[in-house]
Write a protein that binds this DNA or RNA. Structure first.
Lengths: 127, 127
DNA sequence: CGGGATCCCCAATGATACTG
DNA sequence: CAGTATCATTGGGGATCCCG
């Protein structure tokens, strides 16, 4: 048999799925949702929503579907009425929590060292 | 004076700069540029561009300015003609490379475990 | 309760052309 | 060489309504 030429991804190869995967896990709400699920274990949809300040219903559903599609989050439906849907991390999702936690920690640690006037956002607001 | 109540950031606080900072370092080209500079030390603008397949001049300039504004990248101009501009990581930028490298490694390691049919991209491409 | 469907807006991204 | 300016595109993301 031939060994796969790309057993491991290459971020610098435009045709490699790694880039899209990295984009998806870099989504605006992913870091928060993963952390919440990593700490709480299993949560209902509305609990995840309450734990994620500022997220809209649409973005939460969309993000959870994306994470489920990537096998990072497991979805469990209880056939009650009204239905209760629970979300939890898969082992793969838990493995993502580690590097993501490092990035969150870095951002929380260094947010005071960034120059508030040097950011594009504040610069663009200058008339 | 009052001591700052938020010596460390809180990602879950919508008014905390941590979220914007995390958004900026999650930019589409940041991971690649940081890695390139971390490995090469100091590079010219055109070298960074060549090392970042797919990036446009606009996005490269914009991303580099953003990183410079956040104090992650240092810009050095040599007053020759034509001018030569060099970019390198600051110590802060090097400290970001560590968590970012972990995330890159995770993406490259697990790109094969994601279900290609479960992703929004591939689902949308289905006619 | 947990979404799906729809409409709409603006910010991010990109292609192209121009300049110090 | 190292950008900036301009224009065109897109799709992220919020608001709203509806359904099982």
């Amino acid at each position: 048999m031939v060994t796969a030429p790309d057993r491991r991804g290459d971020l610098f190869d435009p045709s490699c799925p790694t880039r899209q995967l990295l984009d998806r896990i870099s989504g605006k709400w992913v870091a928060m949702i993963i952390k919440t699920l990593a700490e709480s274990g299993e949560l209902r949809w509305s609990e995840v929503k309450r734990a994620t300040p500022g997220v809209s219903a649409k973005m939460l559903a969309q993000t959870l579907q994306s994470l489920e599609g990537d096998g990072l989050v497991a979805r469990r439906v209880e056939p009650t009425v009204p239905p209760a849907v629970h979300y939890s991390l898969t082992p793969l999702g838990e493995s993502l929590d580690e590097p993501l936690a490092a990035l969150r920690a870095w951002a929380e640690d260094h947010m005071h060292e960034i120059d508030p006037l040097g950011t594009p956002a504040s610069a663009a607001r200058r008339p």
